[in-house]
Amino acid sequence: MELVVFSLLNGIVFGLLLFMMSAGLTLIFSMMGVLNFAHASFYMLGAYFAFQISQAVGFWPALVLAPLVVGVAGGLVERYGLRRVHKHGHVPELLFTFGLAFLIQEFVVLGWGRVGVPYRVPEILNFPLFTLFGTNFPAYRAFMVLISIGMFVALFAILTRTRVGLIVQASLTHPHIAATLGHNVPRVFMYVFAGGTALAGLAGVIGGNAFVTNPSMAALLGTIVFVVVIVGGLGSLTGAFIAAMVIGIVQTFSVALDVSVGSFFGLLGLDLSSNSIFYEYWTLTLTDIAPVTPYLLLVLILIFRPMGLMGKRET
């Protein structure tokens, strides 16, 4: 019971965080077709900017300002970099973001050094919210949950209830028609890219102090955001939300359960003695393979349902 409650709780928190990190990417990828390899780097930028701004004026202004700064940076990158590459196709775009990730990494090292910065949770949120079975649930985690749910609701409202959102929606599903209708698609692209990176920046603002803020934080996040986007399905924010929750919960449960591959086969009535040549594979526990489960999910989903969980179209 205790195990299930906590795993669920931790899984949901982690899933929401994943969603927050990948929401921007879903927009960018669905709309522009750009596999933004620098997305995690914008997340990192968000954390560093938030640290810098909160040094000067405190956490709350930073919560608003840092994502804006990241968004402006993202918009500039789109306007003066990506747009230029766009006409050559998706591979050059992707490689552009590849190179950009290097540059942002170096920018951070030059600006703040190779060792991390002490970006901390604001004192006002630094207390245990409640205690369950003797374990504290920090208030800051609740705050993170609120922010990411708020973000989901706001994005959803913008996309379905506003004019801009409708144009974006239209471009998501039918990019060419949107252009023929006279919308300035390049400008929409720029705003989408700016918005998407700003969301990554926001994730950085509240993830950077919950976890770590150092030059390797982007690498630590890795390619998991792609998994969320693809598994969720192209063009679907809801899909990304569900995918993030599934991945978060699956990963947490696989850590919590001490089940090995062999014991699973044991349940099926297969006896695998320890001198079998594949012994080491049977002793792999779920915990061992926890970090690769999202990728397993990715491959399986793409084989059996190439449009993802909630996707509206294939690429």
């Binding site: 596999l35 390619t223 990728y295 990715l298």
Partner: peptide, 20 residues
């Protein structure tokens, strides 16, 4: 079976799996 993004993402998934 498919080209495009599906192929690209399967290859990414396989690479992450094998790498880990």
């Amino acid at each position: 079976r498919r080209a495009g993004t599906v192929f690209a993402m399967i290859s990414l998934g396989i690479a992450e799996l094998v790498g880990a």
